[in-house]
Design a protein around this nucleic acid. Sequence first.
DNA 1: CGCGTAACGTTATACGTAAAACCTCGGCCG
DNA 2: CGGCCGAGGTTTTACGTATAACGTTACGCG
Lengths: 339, 339
Amino acid sequence: MQTPEPLGGTRPTSRDVARTAGVSQATVSLVLGEKWRGRVSERTAETVRAAARDLGYRPNLAARNLRLGRTRTAMLVVPALTNEFFAHVYTGAAVAAARHGFGVVLYPSPDGVGPARDPFASAQAALDGVIASSMAADALKAFRGTDLPLVMLDSDPSDPGASAHLNIDVADGMRRVTEHLLGLGHRRFLHLASAVPSWTFDVRAAALADALRGAELRTVRSPLNVADAWTAAHAALDTREPRPTAVICDDDILAVGVLKVARRLGLRVPEDLSITGFDDLALATAVEPELTTVRLPAEEFGRRGMEALLAVLAGEPAPPVTLPVELVRRGSTGPAPAV
Amino acid sequence: MQTPEPLGGTRPTSRDVARTAGVSQATVSLVLGEKWRGRVSERTAETVRAAARDLGYRPNLAARNLRLGRTRTAMLVVPALTNEFFAHVYTGAAVAAARHGFGVVLYPSPDGVGPARDPFASAQAALDGVIASSMAADALKAFRGTDLPLVMLDSDPSDPGASAHLNIDVADGMRRVTEHLLGLGHRRFLHLASAVPSWTFDVRAAALADALRGAELRTVRSPLNVADAWTAAHAALDTREPRPTAVICDDDILAVGVLKVARRLGLRVPEDLSITGFDDLALATAVEPELTTVRLPAEEFGRRGMEALLAVLAGEPAPPVTLPVELVRRGSTGPAPAV
DNA sequence: CGCGTAACGTTATACGTAAAACCTCGGCCG
DNA sequence: CGGCCGAGGTTTTACGTATAACGTTACGCG
């Protein structure tokens, strides 16, 4: 009434709130920052809050970030959200972040689509830290030289470049898969491996080779998409040599590719061929038969990654962690055919 | 050598660059802002660039945002990234954004998980605008009262609350589906509709009812996940009354649920039952038979949404747009059984 | 009475950047 | 020869916030 409120496009600032509340800007900051215990009377505080409410005041985040020198924002670097696994990782990270008043931004299109030459230029948000999957190795180079705290997912724990390490026990996953298949009588295996270079896939291959000593094992590499998996699997299975009786895939997506190939070749699953995957995506239960797979705790992965980053930012220690996996037995595996 | 460079955790500022280059801070800003045509000599410019490179200078985004009053950041509000459709929407938006030096942040967990009471508090990045799916209606309320530019996806074009509207021609999709199925001889239909309230689903239902005048149509609503779809479809199909011969689903996820139910009930697809979906997700080609579905241009949806927002921000007009769809015929539809 | 001190605020400052306004010095033209 | 102009910078200011440092009462207490 007496004070002409700022109209139009200009948003009210803390100074505007101060003016209408009849106090200084500092007091507004104190009250709204919940830092006023014993510094401001309850009466004044209420006046300030009312004024802020009336004006529809929203603190300017850019100004706050500048003042505080931190942004409460973390960047998540993953290959692609269209891979359901990473969508879950993101969700876990975002929820954990929100619980602590943090936000999560994604590395701009690390899967090669689009320019994103300078990650800092595209993601305009300044960052407090980074959580990165080792599957996005090229994107990671952008953060070398930065002194940002870096939590590595699925990366060699002995790598000293990271502030913290978080892994999933995929070696154990491979051991359980082989144990399961060996118990069913299988002796000739095909490993359909990911062509994406990453520590986690190296570990899987090594664990598999180790667990399958004495059995027959071939390996084929393929990108993580159905079409390429199809081609790779087709080449490996359509042979006159004694065929593998079980295909172990690094990923459910690959496994579905194999399933389709098997159908095309007239092989029944699991009677003629057993198939296993990794991740336990929605795909795994959509197909028929449903996939036996190693369930990875994707959402927890994201959550713990964020928690590790928060710990680092708080100066607390963040010891390396390895999350357990679970073997989910479904219809795609069965007794080895008696050749 | 003579100037002790700032060491430790402190990042170099434009003033540090100025000092080592022997110029004023303003000059640094001019050169690095590419605004120096005719204002700074090429020799000086090179000196500045060299100094910036040596010091590893990175502009402070928070300061820049504060100064410029904009952040080159948009927020995307969608139900959940774990729905592949929205992962594609995000990708499209992010790529288009990056091309224009923009970043995209996601609304913090609008699917109900986590707190995220105040979207501004969690997403610390200040925003220039919002792109929102009508499927996240509750989250949208947070932006009422804000004068942020708002691009609505899949929302009633007559809604005046938005700065721009972008839709997908799902009515045409429904018409093509029914045309296809009627052509195959089907006369008894079941519509498995989404329980999520959204304009896009209202449009589909209306278009379907309109196209099926004279034929028999039942409707069942279900949340967009496989488990619930399973239950809903089971109840609708396990009946002694004359069974529908075709199930039209609002979504591939629902369609896969129906496919599993059919198998459970001993119905062959498509001999006994035809099934159609919407979206054309990876799921659609993973299952056997592959799904006949209406392909929605998800990535383009995100891209155009971002472009519309950019237009609004530039003060240009952003007329409402409706994107075309495509019917993809696959194995899940076939001639109606002769009852 | 005098002084510490608690209660309640205010004033002043800094964060790092972009850009408007200003300065200086030759050269050129009328 | 005086004034104007443009090239090539510099000085200064503002963005909105958080907080350290600083006042000003009033009151309790030795």
